[in-house]
Amino acid sequence: MDSRFEKVSALMDGELGDVRKESERMESDPELLERWDRYSLIADLMKGEDVAVPQTDLAADFDRALSEEAVYMSPSSFHKGGAAAGAKKSAAAANEESFWVRGLRKVAGFAIAASVAAVTIVGVQQYSGITPNGTISTAPMGGVAPASAEFNGTRIRNAGSADASSWSEIEHAASRGVRGQKSVSSDASARAEAAEDINEFGIMVKDHEGFRRVSGLDL
């Protein structure tokens, strides 16, 4: 007889020491899971329970659904799993690691995006008529300038027809459009994306108030 099944039998009776290790091993071994199923059914029948044996592999469907659920994490699980020490990783520890790795990637992504944006703004200021103090000159550069142009949704008239108030309007629009509006929308989309990633990780963290789902903005 297969001694692996003897451990399944002991686990069923609550007589096995390392439940986490055995259930983790069973997860990847269909034979062990099948044994657990059959021992369970036999137990029900011996106790005279009413049972219905599904015609489909209901447990496999459930395992798929369960895999999309959050993993519960208590402070002790960070130590018990041993994953951080480089031992075989539990699913929870793998999630923890991927969380930090992906977090760093996101920070790196922001840094690169910010650098590109800064270079672009400087470039535009240097070569497209935006002065260092943020004002826009719409004077034609080697060609005929249009009477007006669309800039981030704000119509800007040609410098030739601009009066003092319209220059102020243009400066304000440019400042809001290039710096404010752009950075706000970037920040909002990044936060939404980060929250989406956190949900994807699906981590339930235990603190003094009990388990709670970690949201993107909590971290």
């Binding site: 986490r20 069973m26 369960l66 659920e69 519960y72 994490m73 002790s76 539990s90």
Partner: peptide, 11 residues
């Protein structure tokens, strides 16, 4: 399960 071993709930 509450200590991170989700698969135990499958059992």
């Amino acid at each position: 399960v509450l200590n991170g071993e989700r698969s135990a709930f499958g059992l």
